[in-house]
Structures are given as structure tokens and as C-alpha cells.
Amino acid sequence: MAATVQITFDAGDPAALARFWAEVLGYELEPPPPGFASWDEALTAWGVPEERRDERSALRDPDGAGPRLFFQRVPEGKTAKNRVHLDVRTASGMRGEERMAVLEERCAQLVALGARRVRRFEPDNLDGGHIVMQDPEGNEFCLD
């Protein structure tokens, strides 16, 4: 039996980080469960106090192909490099300067959304070139 995958992010501000990744990936906020017009309505029905309603957020791929992303509030900040990261496939199939131009354009867009550029890796015989970045909370990812 095949398993499904959910990618979970620990976050200081789950809603803000979810909005960032929704923009990056073209994902959408997960809608409230059936029978509820909004998440506030669902959380009220479930007895979740208002002060705990911003502890989690979730995104889904509108095409249903990609994994669900889940964001959960944690008290501590990020302290070390990620052992796993996302490769955001922005220039698949492209090579050379054309590829790097597309990556640079997307990098500038993501910096405007709150990401930070870390390092550019030039194309070589093994790698078409990529840019290492960090999301607004410091999680590393690559534009590939």
C-alpha cells in the first residue's frame, strides 16, 4: 500500500508562513471541514479557545498532486541548518544562462515576499545551477 506524505513546518507564526508557502507553490489554504462555513465556525464548535486558534495552518495543492503542508506553532526558534529541505522546481528542463535568469527572477519575487537569498550555485557538469534561499522563518530551500 502506498503512503501519502504531509510536510510539517515548525513555526513561530504558522499563518504567515503558510501564506508565504502558498505564494511560492501556488497552493491554497485548506478549506474548513464539511458543514462549516469558516475555520472560526469549526473551531468554535469544537470548543477551541480564541487564543489557540492561530497555532496551526494547512495548505493543499489545488490540483491534488502535491503533498499537504502543515504549519504548527512551536515556542523555540530555528537554531540549526535543516536536514531536509524543499527544492522548488522553477526552471525544470532549462540549462545555462536561460535557467539562471529564470531562477534569478523567481528569487527576486520571493525576496519581495520575505525570503532571504543565501547563495547561488553556478551550472556545472552535474548540476544545472540553483539558488539556496531561506523562508521568512529561516528554513532553507532551493530554487532549482
Rank of each mutant, 00 (worst) to 15 (best):
A115V: 07
R19Q: 07
T44G: 13
R68I: 03
W39L: 03
E104Y: 02
G93Q: 05
E55P: 15
A16I: 00
F70Q: 01
F20W: 11
M100E: 14
R116E: 11
I7E: 01
T4C: 15
F9R: 07
P32T: 15
L17S: 07
S57F: 04
V118C: 04
A37M: 03
P62K: 05
E30K: 13
R19V: 03
R68F: 07
G77F: 05
G114L: 00
R120H: 13
A3Y: 11
N82C: 09
L69V: 01
E51C: 08
G93R: 00
R60F: 09
A115K: 10
Y27T: 04
R53E: 09
D63A: 09
A18Y: 13
A18C: 05
A112S: 13
E122Y: 09
G93W: 08
D87C: 00
F20A: 03
H85F: 06
F71P: 15
A91S: 13
P49C: 00
T44V: 06
F121E: 11
D127M: 08
L59F: 12
T90G: 03
A108F: 07
E137S: 01
D144M: 12
E105Y: 09
L103F: 06
E140A: 06
L43S: 02
E97V: 09
P49A: 00
Q134W: 04
G47V: 00
